[in-house]
Simulated scan of single mutants.
Amino acid sequence: MTSLPPHPLLATAVELAPRLSARSAEFESARRLPPDVIAEFARAGFFRMLIPEAYGGLELHPALSFQVIEALSQADGAAGWCAMIGASTGLSSAWLPESVARAVFSSPEVIIGGVAAPLGRAERVEGGYRVTGRWPWASAGHHCHWLVGGAVVTEGGNPRFVREGVPETRLLYFPAESVTLHDTWFSLGLCGTGSGDMEVRDLFVREDHAFTLLAPPRVSRPLYGFPFGLLGHAIPAVALGIARRAIDELLTLARQKTVLVERRLLAARPAVQETVAEADAEVRAARAFLLEVIHATFDASTKGPVSMRARADLRLAMTHGTRAAARAVDRVYEAAGGPAVFHTHALQRCLRDIHTLTQHAMVARPTLEITGGVLLGFDPPLPNL
């Protein structure tokens, strides 16, 4: 696996970690990150990690952005998730016309978010689209200057198809003031992400503010040949960060808690020792697999279009990394015993956060059917990978 030199943004994430962890309860209570944290993230450059350098972004190697998101998520799952959404959605700037991208990202502290799932309807009209739709999971939407929504393209009220059974879709940029945000985020975990619904009604969107990831990017750089799918490698970065935090919490607890009946530290219990070993190995192995595939896929993107098999490998590593992280958290939560059930203990938050994250369609179990199909020689539709 190729190693990369340390990046200042990773050092910033590590430096911020203790302060983020100390405010986790505040984030949960508010059900969104506070403005001062979002502003600090913007100033640091977390939301610009995947924006082209030509537009003022950092254009980081995907392995570096992975590590930054992982470090923030180890501190607090909600903080890592919000940074991930802003950074990953900013990737879409490479598909916009240059004049639009420069206007949207004219400020280095602009924040963009949204939902890529094509849950809206975009009726073709002269000069663009009339868009109506409502999208759940609009994380950190309250702090965004622009929001992106996915929509099925219609004409005369009827869906357009690119081929039989496959509707034409677009991702569309909405100015935040044109979007209604609904306070619907009452969730099991990732409570501080503010991931309520966003809605637009009959909103005109210019043609040059709409794009599809199935078209070639307008910025011809290796990063934009990497098959992110907007969220790409970033969801497992959050998951693995949460899992590492959970393991660290068990290590701390086990060295402090005395099992009264046994009159020894929890750390001396063989079952706990086995759990720590298994969880640590599972997280490190999943992380190594994912980083290996990220490097290999990025190297392939520097040489030309990424093959379907390489895309399948990346999706497999994403889903495996996320689900391995969840298994590790389950193990350490159970080993911790009674103290982990209380809201004052970080382990219960890790458990809730990881099992909210695993419900995301990008890393849910059905993705294994797609990647397994490729390994067995089937050729799935391109949008799936």
Results as ranks from 00 to 15, higher is better:
183 D>L: 08
183 D>E: 15
184 T>S: 13
186 F>M: 08
186 F>I: 09
186 F>K: 12
187 S>D: 13
187 S>Y: 11
188 L>F: 13
191 C>G: 08
192 G>C: 10
192 G>D: 07
192 G>E: 04
193 T>A: 08
194 G>F: 03
196 G>W: 00
197 D>P: 03
198 M>G: 05
198 M>F: 09
198 M>T: 08
199 E>F: 01
199 E>Y: 01
200 V>A: 02
201 R>T: 15
201 R>D: 12
203 L>N: 03
204 F>M: 07
204 F>G: 02
204 F>K: 06
204 F>E: 08
204 F>N: 08
206 R>F: 12
206 R>V: 04
206 R>I: 03
207 E>L: 14
207 E>G: 06
208 D>S: 07
209 H>L: 13
210 A>L: 07
210 A>H: 02
211 F>I: 12
211 F>H: 09
212 T>F: 05
212 T>S: 15
212 T>D: 14
212 T>K: 06
213 L>R: 06
214 L>G: 06
214 L>S: 13
215 A>C: 06
216 P>Y: 05
217 P>M: 01
217 P>R: 04
217 P>Q: 04
218 R>L: 15
218 R>I: 11
218 R>P: 00
220 S>C: 11
221 R>A: 15
221 R>Y: 14
222 P>M: 10
223 L>K: 02
223 L>A: 07
224 Y>T: 02
224 Y>N: 01
224 Y>G: 01
225 G>A: 08
226 F>K: 02
226 F>D: 00
227 P>N: 05
227 P>F: 08
229 G>C: 10
230 L>Q: 06
231 L>K: 05
232 G>M: 04
232 G>D: 07
232 G>I: 08
233 H>C: 09
236 P>I: 05
236 P>F: 03
237 A>K: 06
237 A>R: 03
237 A>P: 02
238 V>P: 00
238 V>D: 01
239 A>C: 07
239 A>Q: 01
240 L>C: 07
240 L>M: 15
240 L>Y: 08
240 L>D: 00
241 G>M: 03
241 G>L: 02
241 G>R: 00
241 G>T: 05
242 I>D: 00
243 A>W: 03
243 A>H: 02
244 R>A: 09
244 R>F: 04
245 R>H: 14
245 R>A: 12
246 A>R: 03
247 I>S: 01
251 L>S: 11
251 L>W: 09
251 L>F: 06
252 T>F: 12
252 T>D: 14
253 L>M: 07
253 L>G: 03
254 A>P: 01
254 A>L: 09
254 A>V: 11
255 R>D: 15
255 R>M: 10
255 R>I: 03
255 R>S: 15
256 Q>R: 15
256 Q>G: 07
257 K>V: 12
257 K>W: 14
258 T>Y: 14
259 V>C: 03
259 V>G: 05
260 L>I: 13
260 L>S: 14
260 L>T: 12
262 E>I: 06
263 R>M: 12
263 R>A: 13
263 R>T: 09
263 R>F: 10
264 R>E: 13
264 R>D: 12
264 R>S: 11
265 L>A: 06
265 L>W: 09
265 L>H: 10
266 L>Q: 01
266 L>R: 04
267 A>T: 07
267 A>E: 15
268 A>N: 13
270 P>V: 11
270 P>Y: 05
271 A>Q: 14
271 A>H: 06
